[in-house]
């Protein structure tokens, strides 16, 4: 420490240089940096897991106390719903047959016999208010790799951006780094859905590159399309809120309400299969070797 106090300018220059070098290395990818995450992760993620579980438990208790009246009402409604579902289950053989016919119709079963999924717990969120990504407690040890699709209850929640042995970072649908090829289920028109900083603050996304002739309407359901690099087709992304002409009028863009709410997520589902470019990247690496 004495040496550093005597050579403050050297210390300052060294600190700035190391940081700038790290930034350049990460951006250009000329050297691996994932060992840092692996190293810190062994210490941080068990603590995050514990803190996250404790916080969820406490907030759950507070929630129960605060909503006891509402829970009793919900309970009564759920009993009724339970009875109704019991009746539906009784007619399941008929619905299963109908479902099989639909699958055949859309050629889904031939392409994806089944989407294999694995559950994971959310253990940490990015403390930087400008990004919407989070850490889950499954990683390469559990067969999770970058570019796998992450689902919430209802639809797409994001994709795996980076995976370490025991945990992974998920870039959510509201993050500006998220993009997916998408299709309007009603009109069959395609476009690209991506996270947008401005809309993300209100929990919305944007769908771009829609042809000017497309007739999008509020309420249209948007699914992943088979034109995408990473995602299998047919997974719900969200619904159209509004449609606008792009500057120049050659294309349109739509505001999308995601099917999954990002508030208070505790668990997610990961499709532990890779598709398209994600599979190529996993096999051949980013340099194509």
């Amino acid at each position: 420490m004495e040496f550093l106090h005597k050579h403050k300018r050297l210390f300052l220059a060294l600190g700035i240089t190391i940081s700038l070098l790290a930034i350049i290395i990460t951006i250009t990818g000329i050297a691996p940096t994932s060992f840092l995450g692996r190293g810190f992760g062994y210490i941080v993620t068990p603590m995050q897991r514990g803190a996250s579980s404790a916080t969820s438990w406490i907030s759950g208790r507070i929630d129960v106390l605060a909503r006891s009246e509402q829970i009793l009402t919900e309970n009564a409604a759920l009993r009724e719903e339970n009875m109704r579902l019991s009746n539906i289950i009784a007619s399941m053989p008929h619905l299963e047959e109908e479902n099989r016919l639909f699958h055949e119709m859309f050629d889904m079963e031939q392409r994806y016999p089944e989407l294999s999924m694995v559950g994971a717990r959310l253990i940490g969120q990015n403390p930087n208010n400008w990004e919407a990504n989070f850490i889950i407690d499954k990683g390469t040890n559990h067969g999770i790799y970058p570019n796998m699709i992450v689902l919430g209850f209802g639809g797409v929640l994001g994709r795996i951006e980076h995976a370490w042995p025991g945990y992974s970072r998920v870039v959510s649908i509201l993050d500006t780094r998220f993009a997916a090829a998408a299709r309007n289920a009603r009109t069959e028109d395609v476009g690209t859905v991506h996270g947008n900083m401005e809309l993300g603050l209100d929990g919305l996304m944007r769908m771009d590159h829609i042809v000017a002739s497309a007739r999008f309407m509020p309420g249209d359901r948007i699914y992943t399309s088979d034109h995408g690099a990473f995602f299998p087709p047919g997974i719900l992304i969200g619904t159209v809120v509004s449609v606008h002409a792009s500057p120049g009028g050659l294309t349109q863009y739509a505001i999308i309400q995601p099917a999954v709410s990002l508030d208070r997520i505790d668990v997610v589902l990961i499709v532990d299969q890779l598709f398209g470019e994600g599979l190529d990247l996993a096999i051949f690496g980013e340099d194509g070797q």
Partner: peptide
């Protein structure tokens, strides 16, 4: 913070 965020490593460190 850099290591677990999606941005370039070194930005928050700097």
């Amino acid at each position: 913070q850099d290591v677990f965020s999606g941005g370039p490593i070194g930005m928050f460190a700097l």
